[in-house]
């Protein structure tokens, strides 16, 4: 039986049509958009991790070079042998070990910087991100801020 325009039955039918449109038309496109965003996030993350891994490798290679240059082995030998009794030898060993510690501290700091850079570039954790607005309208949970009317 055909419904008359403006009748409650016609309103219910319009609502069902709108619901079907949302379910079949909008929801899949939203899902696809979110999937695409996830893919982009994953690709971005992979690129950041690869870049960081390269930076770490370079930092480690540099550390090996620098610690070889500092040559702490000679100082270590002084510490465990009777050579330690000689004041001049002790002085030289102290300078070498201080230099080796400085090189190690710099390497640790560099690693920390790489890690910090990676975290900054990868963005905040997903759980702390602001939710995206739905494409069909403003977020209902955040009503527009009303401006105070000037009264004077």
């Amino acid at each position: 039986m055909p419904h008359r325009e403006g009748s409650p039955a016609a309103g219910a039918r319009d609502f069902r049509v709108a619901a079907c449109f949302l379910l079949l038309g909008v929801a899949p496109s939203v899902f696809l958009a979110q999937a695409q965003e996830r893919n982009r996030d994953t690709e971005k993350m992979q690129a950041i991790v690869a870049a960081s891994a390269e930076q770490y490798k370079k930092a480690d290679r540099d550390y090996v070079e620098n610690i070889k240059a500092a040559n702490p082995n000679t100082a270590v030998v002084v510490v465990v042998t009777e050579d330690i009794a000689d004041a001049a030898t002790r002085r030289a060993a102290r300078a070498t070990l201080t230099s080796a510690i400085k090189v190690t501290d710099e390497a640790l700091k560099r690693r920390e910087h790489i890690l910090e850079g990676t975290i900054v570039r990868s963005g905040p954790p997903r759980s702390t991100r602001r939710p995206r607005k739905p494409p069909w309208g403003p977020c209902a949970s955040s009503p527009p801020v009303r401006r105070r009317s000037r009264s004077s």
Partner: peptide, 21 residues
């Protein structure tokens, strides 16, 4: 592991300095 190793090396060198002192 690399960081653990660096920290271990640092502690080793620092102990050497302590002995010298």
């Amino acid at each position: 592991l690399a960081v653990q190793l660096m920290k271990a090396m640092r502690a080793y060198f620092a102990k050497g300095l302590e002995i010298l002192a």
